[in-house]
C-alpha cells in the first residue's frame, strides 16, 4: 500500500547537549509565534528561540545549544517531563530541523513522545542514576559520546553499557524500518469498513 519511507533509525553515536531543566514545555521548544507556517521546514532556526536568542536575535552564548561544543551533537539530554504542554508537532519538527535525532530524559510528556517518534526523533527514557551519569560525563568531557542502539534498546556511554530503555514495539518497528504508521492504518481499511457498517 502507500507507505512513506523516511530515514531509518538503528544506532546513533554522537556527542550530546544537556538541557537539565525539568518540565521543558513545547512553548519553549518552539514559541507559538512560529506556528503560523504551513509547512514543516525551517523550524530548526527557531528551536528554543526565546532561550537561544535575545530579543534582538543575538545568540545567547550561555545557552547549551549555542556553545561551540554543541556543534554536531545529535542527541539532547533533557530533564523530566520533557515536551509537556501543547500537541504541536512543530516541536519535534524544530528539534529535528536543528539536527537532533534522539532525546534522553527521565520522562516525556505523552503527546510529545508520540509526535517525536513519528518524525524519526527517538525519545529515550532512562532512570535517574543513568541520567546523572550522563550529566557527569558531559561535565568531565564535553566531547563525551553516547550510543543509542534502538534494535537492542540500550544506551552506551564511553563504550560501557549505561542503561536499557523501553519503547512500544510497534513504534520501534516503524523507526527501525523507516516507515510511518499511516501505511499500516490504510492497510486496515477492510476492518474500518466493517466497523463503520456495524456502527452506522
Amino acid at each position: 500500500m502507500k507507505r512513506e519511507a523516511r530515514e531509518a533509525f538503528t544506532t546513533l553515536t554522537s556527542t550530546f547537549v544537556v538541557l537539565p531543566a525539568d518540565n521543558v514545555d513545547t512553548d519553549q521548544i518552539i514559541p507559538a509565534r512560529f506556528l503560523k507556517v504551513t509547512d514543516k521546514v525551517g523550524l530548526g532556526a527557531n528551536v528554543f528561540a526565546d532561550w537561544r536568542l535575545g530579543p534582538d536575535g543575538t545568540p545567547n552564548p550561555d545557552f547549551p545549544l549555542n556553545r561551540p561544543d554543541a556543534a554536531g551533537a545529535r542527541i539532547l539530554v533533557a530533564g523530566a517531563n520533557f515536551g509537556c504542554g501543547s500537541s504541536r508537532e512543530h516541536a519535534p519538527w524544530a528539534l529535528v530541523g536543528w539536527g537532533l535525532r534522539a532525546i534522553i530524559a527521565p520522562s516525556f510528556a505523552d503527546i510529545f513522545k508520540q509526535n517525536a517518534m513519528k518524525n524519526g526523533l527517538l525519545p529515550v527514557a532512562v532512570d535517574a542514576a543513568a541520567h546523572a551519569r550522563l550529566l557527569e560525563a558531559r561535565r568531565a568531557d564535553p566531547r563525551a559520546s553516547v550510543t543509542v542502539d534502538l534494535p537492542a534498546q540500550t544506551v552506551t556511554l564511553g563504550g560501557k553499557p549505561l542503561a536499557g530503555f523501553a519503547i512500544d514495539p510497534f513504534a520501534k518497528e516503524c523507526l527501525v524500518h523507516g516507515v510511518d504508521e499511516l501505511g499500516y492504518l490504510l492497510d486496515r481499511a477492510a476492518d474500518i469498513d466493517r466497523y463503520e457498517a456495524k456502527h452506522a
Binding site: 501543547s86 500537541s87 509526535n115 499511516l182
Partner: peptide, 17 residues
Amino acid sequence: GIGTSEVEHVLATQCLL
C-alpha cells in the same frame, strides 16, 4: 489532543493507532 501526523491519519482513515 493529537499531533499533525495523527491529524493526517484520522483524515485519511478516521482511525488512530
